[in-house]
């Protein structure tokens, strides 16, 4: 399985390829403290009206705390499925998925809901804000499901909105905000419960390039502050913001390399 990892010597702080191979290879064993995500031979198949679609065919990924990783791939490569699995919205048919030292690949629906609530902050391409709720209420939602009492909930939601420079717009509804602002509300919502990972799915897909740049700066600064960020995208120039780029192809890891290598290969400006 480890042959799926395309070797590129990634040194500290990203850790070496050997280290990742070691942690991925130790099937059944809980990974160490600093590994946020470890997947071992994850497979996911769908039954589409009798035809079996093999979306993931054995994916091995190991991501440390504080990494900023982009998952790339053409459509049909399985990147959305991988994101759903990593985001605990879906469970694999085979293989292990360890999130923050806990194996979540065999959890029940409700247990997965807990994990999504506590460990994962989603940012979607289409923002996915509740249209009739204010920015504040949208950001409060994860805390509602975490059972945080009202006072503290509002305080923390306000803080999260201030972190994305939207402190002055807490009472606005999504349709009163620009695309960039909506996405920042979504980021605030993703961060409000202090998740282990921030999981962004094409976060700039619905934004113009200037606003995209602005959102990428937000991710940049979050990553600088130590937030683990995983971003799924099919745009190389967006992926190039991450410090490590995993490319999927046909449901398997095609390459896994640090940003400089990736940028060099694509001939993008560094």
């Amino acid at each position: 399985m480890s042959q799926d990892i395309v070797h590129d010597s990634l040194e500290a702080p990203l850790g070496s390829t050997a280290e990742r191979q070691a942690v991925v290879g130790a099937a059944g064993a809980a990974p160490g403290q600093d590994w946020v995500i470890v997947t071992r031979g994850i497979k996911r198949e769908y039954d589409m009206g009798g035809e079996v679609v093999r979306a993931l065919r054995g994916v091995d990924v190991a991501i440390r705390r504080n990494e900023y990783v982009a998952i790339m791939g053409p459509s049909g490569s399985g990147k959305s499925t991988l994101m759903n699995v990593i985001g605990c919205l879906d469970t694999p048919n085979a293989g292990e998925y360890w999130l923050n030292g806990t194996q979540v690949s065999k959890m029940s629906d409700d247990a997965l809901a807990r994990v999504r609530n506590k460990e994962i902050g989603f940012v979607f391409q289409t923002f996915n804000l509740l249209p009739r709720a204010s920015a504040l209420h949208n950001v409060e939602l994860p805390l509602v499901y975490a059972g945080v009492p009202g006072e503290e909930r509002r305080r923390r939601a306000k803080e999260a909105l201030e972190r994305v420079q939207l402190g002055g717009r807490i009472d606005h509804r999504p349709n009163e905000l620009s695309g960039g602002q909506r996405q920042r509300v979504a980021i605030a919502r993703a961060l409000v419960n202090n998740p282990s990972i921030l999981l962004a799915d094409e976060p700039t897909g619905n934004l113009d390039s200037a606003t995209s740049e602005e959102i990428m700066k937000v991710f940049e600064s979050l990553a600088d502050q130590g937030q683990t960020v995983i971003m799924v995208t099919h745009e190389p120039d967006i992926a190039a913001h991450a410090r490590r780029v995993i490319v999927l192809r046909d449901g398997m890891v095609h390459s896994d390399e640090r940003r400089s290598t990736f940028v060099e290969k694509l001939g993008l400006p560094a």
């Binding site: 919205l89 809901a113 807990r114 506590k118 989603f122 996915n128 994860p142």
Partner: peptide, 10 residues
Amino acid sequence: GIRKSLGARR
């Protein structure tokens, strides 16, 4: 879907 992704249980 949104609520579930944010941690709402059944």
